[in-house]
C-alpha cells in the first residue's frame, strides 16, 4: 500500500510544487490585503479535492490499475493507497496553511486571533474529508473522466447547501438552537468526517473487488 502512496507522490510531484507556489502567492495577497485569509482555507479544500482526482486521472491514462492489481499490492492495496494519499494530501495542505496563517497573523495581528483561524481550518479539513468520502467511491467506480461532472455537482450541492442553510439560519433568528446541540456539533462533525471516511473506504473496496480490469 505504501508503494501506491509513494507512486502518487512521485507522479504528482510537479503539481505539488505548483500548489506550494500558489500557497505562497495567496499568503502574500493576504498580507497585502488583496484577499481575505479565507482564501487559504479554500486552497486547503481545493487541494484535498483535486489531488485525489488527479491521481485517478493519471492512473487511468497510464492504465496503472491493471498492472498494480497484478502485483502483491493487489486491489486492496490500490484502494487503501488512494485513501491514505487523499488523507495525507488534505493534512499536508492543512499543516502548510496553519504555518502560513500563523505567519500572516504575526505580521498582521489586526486580521484576528490565530485560534479562530485554526478552528476554521480544522472545520475545512473535516468538510474536505466528508467530500472525499463521497467522491472516492465515485472515482473508484467510474474513473476520473466520468467522475468529473459528478464531483462538480457534488461541490455545488455541498457548498450551495451550506450557503442556503446559512441564509435559512439568518431568517430563523428567533429560533433558539439547544445548547447541547451546539456543544455536540464539533464532535458530530468529527464523527461524520472520520466515520464517513472509514465507511467510504469499505464501500470503495467492495466496488473495486468486483471491477474488471
Amino acid at each position: 500500500m505504501m508503494g501506491m502512496v509513494y507512486k502518487d507522490v512521485l507522479v504528482l510531484r510537479k503539481q505539488l510544487g505548483y500548489y506550494g507556489i500558489f500557497f505562497l502567492v495567496y499568503t502574500f495577497l493576504t498580507v497585502t490585503d488583496v484577499m481575505p485569509p479565507a482564501i487559504m482555507y479554500a486552497m486547503t479544500v481545493l487541494i484535498g479535492m483535486m489531488l485525489p482526482m488527479s491521481t485517478f486521472a493519471y492512473d487511468d491514462l497510464a492504465r496503472w490499475n491493471k498492472y498494480a492489481a497484478a502485483t502483491p499490492a493487489g486491489r486492496r492495496g490500490i484502494v487503501a493507497g488512494k485513501y491514505v494519499f487523499s488523507l495525507l494530501a488534505v493534512l499536508a495542505a492543512a499543516v502548510l496553511t496553519a504555518l502560513l496563517l500563523t505567519a500572516v497573523v504575526v505580521l498582521k495581528p489586526e486580521l484576528g486571533p490565530l485560534d479562530e483561524g485554526l478552528i476554521g481550518l480544522l472545520i475545512c479539513v473535516l468538510i474536505t474529508m466528508v467530500i472525499d468520502a463521497v467522491m472516492l467511491p465515485v472515482l473508484v467506480k467510474f474513473g476520473a473522466e466520468k467522475s468529473r461532472l459528478i464531483s462538480i455537482v457534488l461541490f455545488v450541492v455541498i457548498f450551495g447547501g451550506a450557503m442556503l442553510l446559512g441564509q435559512l439560519a439568518g431568517a430563523l433568528e428567533g429560533i433558539v438552537i439547544p445548547g447541547w446541540f451546539l456543544t455536540a456539533l464539533p464532535g458530530l462533525l468529527v464523527l461524520l468526517a472520520v466515520g464517513g471516511y472509514i465507511i467510504s473506504y469499505f464501500i470503495s473496496r467492495g466496488i473495486f473487488e468486483k471491477k474488471e480490469l
Binding site: 510531484r13 498494480a68 502485483t71
Partner: peptide
Amino acid sequence: IGVVLDESTFHDTLRSLDVGKILRKIYK
C-alpha cells in the same frame, strides 16, 4: 510472479529510477 502486460503501464511523468523506488515498496 513478474508481469509484463501488452502496453507500458508506468506513468509518463515518472523516470525509470522512480519505477524502481516504487516497486521496491511493493515486492518483498
